[in-house]
């Protein structure tokens, strides 16, 4: 049987210059259920599709609030994500404690990127098997970052990771121009539509399997500068799903039936 000699640890390059353990970790991300993130000028939105292990079990957690100004969506090994999110919560709290300032997004994303990178360069370590979408606001406005097990981080306008996420990315690419000037609700709607694209034939978005996280700048004249991270789960998602249904029947926010043309 063919055996790969270069995937026993994460510190050995293959002759082609690849590190297989890192690539396998990236496969773990693709096993996780899909999460979508997108930003415009005022808000950052995360939406996720939750799976339940079995009929009687609860649904997994896909979106985690890190601080009042940011949250993450996870795809892959949830337990690895918990380690990372605990770290992020600590750093975030530390920044608030010592400087009285919400930690800048780029800063904390760089920190988890650095952490993940050390796992790919030390013998006996394993890369994190999870990909993250980090959404939040700071002094410079709303941001969305993608984090990969390799330690690679990118700032994104819109992104989807997890199983069948290509479908969502296709949707996001097609509608990218509409995001930047749309409202908070429209942005959520776009997120949900991207999420819906990834569903297999027999699946539907329901209040049980959908979660949505939103954070953004507060409207002009408000007391605080930001609208704190708000996580919608369970019955709270119902109005959002209803809005999604309405927009589909009327054909707005989706881009005047362009889907039919392109498919």
């Amino acid at each position: 049987m063919f055996r790969n000699n270069y995937d026993n640890d994460a510190v050995t390059f293959s002759p082609q210059g690849r590190i297989f353990q890192v690539e396998y970790a990236q496969e773990a991300v693709k096993q996780g259920s899909v999460v979508v993130g997108l930003v415009n000028k005022t808000h950052a939105v995360l939406v996720g599709l939750k799976r339940n292990a079995e009929e009687l079990s609860s649904y997994q957690k896909k979106i985690i609030e890190i601080d009042s100004h940011m949250g993450i969506a996870i795809a892959g090994l949830a337990s690895d994500a918990r380690v990372l999110s605990n770290f992020m919560k600590q750093q975030s709290l530390g920044s608030k404690m010592t400087y009285g300032r919400p930690i800048p997004l780029e800063r904390i994303v760089t920190q988890i990127g650095d952490r993940a990178q050390t796992n790919t360069q030390q013998y006996g370590k394993r890369p994190y098997g999870v990909g993250l979408l980090v959404a939040g606001v700071d002094e410079t406005g709303p941001h969305l970052f993608e984090f990969q097990p390799s330690g690679l981080t990118h700032e994104m306008l819109a992104c989807a990771i997890g199983a069948r996420s290509q479908m969502a990315r296709t949707y996001l690419e097609r509608h990218l121009d509409e995001f930047s000037d749309c409202s908070r609700d429209e942005l959520i709607n776009h997120g949900l539509r991207a999420l819906k694209e990834t569903l297999s034939q027999d699946k539907e978005l329901t209040v049980d399997n959908t979660s949505v996280g939103v954070v953004g700048l507060a409207p002009e004249g408000s007391k605080s500068k930001i609208q704190s991270f708000k996580l919608y789960e369970g019955q709270e998602t119902l109005p959002l799903l209803e809005a999604l249904e309405r927009s589909e029947t009327s054909g707005e926010a989706g881009g005047e039936g362009s889907m039919e043309v392109d498919s």
Partner: peptide
Amino acid sequence: YSSDGNLLNAKNLHTYLSK
């Protein structure tokens, strides 16, 4: 180091120094 525009203001600095 990262020129992302998130700079500490005097209030942040004061909080830090008091700690």
